[in-house]
Design a protein around this nucleic acid. Sequence first.
DNA 1: TCAAATTACGGTCGACGTAAGGATC
DNA 2: GATCCTTACGTCGACCGTAATTTGA
Lengths: 96, 96
Amino acid sequence: MELKQLQYFVACAELGSFSKAADELYTTQPNVSKIIKSLEEELGFELFERQKRGIQLTEKGQLIYEQAYKAIENINQLSILAGEIELQLKEKVWKK
Amino acid sequence: MELKQLQYFVACAELGSFSKAADELYTTQPNVSKIIKSLEEELGFELFERQKRGIQLTEKGQLIYEQAYKAIENINQLSILAGEIELQLKEKVWKK
DNA sequence: TCAAATTACGGTCGACGTAAGGATC
DNA sequence: GATCCTTACGTCGACCGTAATTTGA
C-alpha cells in the first residue's frame, strides 16, 4: 500500500472520473487507471464499477474511501506540523 | 512524503538504531540511512542526532514521531478494514 | 466522431544491494 | 578489530508518457 494509491483513489472517487483526476493530479489517464487497478488487486476487490460513461464507487469502495480520506488528512496534518516545527518553535502552535 | 519514509522513521525511532531497523524491515543499513536522510531533507530539519554509537531522536524528531505513528496506525486500520470487507460482509465487524 | 477507460510498449530514472570509507568503542 | 552510519557505484525494475484499442454517447 502506497500513499499515492490512496491519493489517486480519493481524487477519482471525488471527481467521479479517471480523466478528471488525471488532470487534477498532473498526470495521464493511463497512469491513473493503472494505479487504481494496482490498488484493487492489492485489496482483492474492485473499488469502482466501470460504466459506459465514467465510473462509480462500489459499496466496498465507499467504505474504503472514508478511511482513505482520513488517512490522507492525517498525513496532511503531519506536513503542517512539520512546517510549524521548521519555524523554530517561535510560536508554540502545536501546544494546543 | 511517502509512506515508506514514515515506516522506516518509526522503526528507527523505536529501535534506536538504523541497523536494527534495517533487519526488521528486511532491507540494508545504507538503504535505511538514505531514506531517513531523504525525509529529513524534505522536512528541512534533522530527525536524529547521529552519535558515536547509534542515534537518538531530536526534539523535533520526537514531535514528528508521534504524528507519524498515528498516521501509520491509520493506514494499518485501513488494511484491516480492507481485510474485513474482503470477507464479503459476512460479519458486520465495522458497524461498531 | 468525440469522450473515456484499458492495453501495449519503450525509455528513463530511481531504488536497492554490494562494496568501500570513516568513526568510535 | 568490531560495530554502526555514510558515501560511492552499478544494475535492474518500475513508473511514466505516447500511441493504439475498445466501447459507448
